[in-house]
Structures are given as C-alpha cells and as structure tokens.
Amino acid sequence: MLLIRAIIRPEKTGIVLSELLAAGFPAVTKMDVFGRGKQKGIIIGDVQYDEIPKEMLLIVVNDEDKDDIVKVIMRNARTGEKGNFGDGRIFISQVLDAYTISTAKQGL
C-alpha cells in the first residue's frame, strides 16, 4: 500500500476531488495547510508572504493504482498548459498496514 500526499492550490481542490471520484478513487482526506516552496513565498510590494495557503490530499491506495492517481492529480492541479510555480507537490510513501476501526478489518 502507498500513501499519496498531494499539496495543491486551494482553487484546484474541487476539480481534483471530482476527477479522483470519477476515476474510481473516492477515499480522500483533505486538510488546509500553509507553507512555502523553493521560491520562499511571494513578495508583493514591501510585504513578503512566506506562508501560502494550500490543500493537502491524503490518499491510501494499492501499489498498482499509484500511476493512475498521480496522472489525475497532475492533469487537474496544474495551472496553465505548462504549469506554474506554486502548483504543488506529490509525495509517495509506503504504508505498512491499515485497519478499519469499525470492523477490525486489515488492509484496504
């Protein structure tokens, strides 16, 4: 199993979630987060904003679904044809195990 963490622009969250659902991946946890990337924030006039609002989507999937989910996120979270700074990042980690609390069932 894998944990896919996608940090994306808030205005892209709706379309990404809709497209994940349409692709057969309805289970997602969403969190409001703040941070900055390589650009170290945004400077507007005399003010530097180093904590930019983003959304983090957490998706636990079977290994074979990784490429499909990454493609859906990349296609729908990108701004413009070639993308722009601040469009986000996708991180993928191993998940050792998962349990459903209500049923005590192991795995997805």
Rank of each mutant, 00 (worst) to 15 (best):
F91V: 02
E81G: 14
E81Q: 13
K71M: 09
D68E: 14
I59H: 05
N84I: 01
E64G: 07
N84K: 08
M74W: 03
G88Q: 01
Y49S: 10
D50N: 14
K54S: 05
D68I: 11
Y49L: 13
I92R: 06
P53Q: 04
I73F: 02
E64N: 12
N76P: 04
V60W: 09
K71C: 08
K71V: 10
G86T: 01
K54N: 07
D87M: 00
D68R: 12
F85E: 13
D46Y: 06
V47G: 06
K71S: 15
D65V: 05
V61T: 13
I69V: 14
G80C: 03
E55C: 07
M56E: 15
A77Y: 01
D65A: 15
E51R: 10
R89F: 03
T79C: 05
G86H: 02
I59R: 03
E64T: 10
Y49K: 08
A77C: 04
A77Q: 02
L96D: 13
D68N: 14
R75A: 15
A77W: 00
K66R: 15
D50C: 05
M74Q: 14
V95S: 07
L96E: 13
Y49Q: 11
V61S: 14
I52V: 14
G80N: 07
I52N: 07
A77G: 13
D50Y: 02
I52D: 10
V47Y: 08
E64V: 11
F85S: 10
G86N: 03
I59V: 14
Q48V: 12
D50E: 15
E51F: 02
L57Q: 06
F85N: 07
T79V: 04
I73V: 14
D63Q: 13
P53F: 01
L57V: 06
L58G: 13
I69E: 05
I92M: 08
G83E: 03
F91D: 06
K82W: 14
D68G: 11
E64Q: 12
S93D: 12
K71H: 08
D65M: 12
Q48L: 11
Y49A: 09
V95T: 06
G80P: 00
I92C: 11
F85A: 12
Q94N: 15
K71D: 15
M74E: 15
E64I: 09
D65H: 13
G83K: 01
G83I: 01
G83H: 05
I92L: 08
I69P: 01
M56V: 06
G45L: 00
L57E: 10
M56H: 03
E64Y: 12
N76R: 02
R78A: 06
V95Q: 07
D68Y: 00
D68P: 00
V72D: 04
I69S: 07
I59N: 06
K54W: 00
L58P: 03
I92V: 15
D68M: 10
M56W: 02
I69K: 03
M56D: 07
G45C: 05
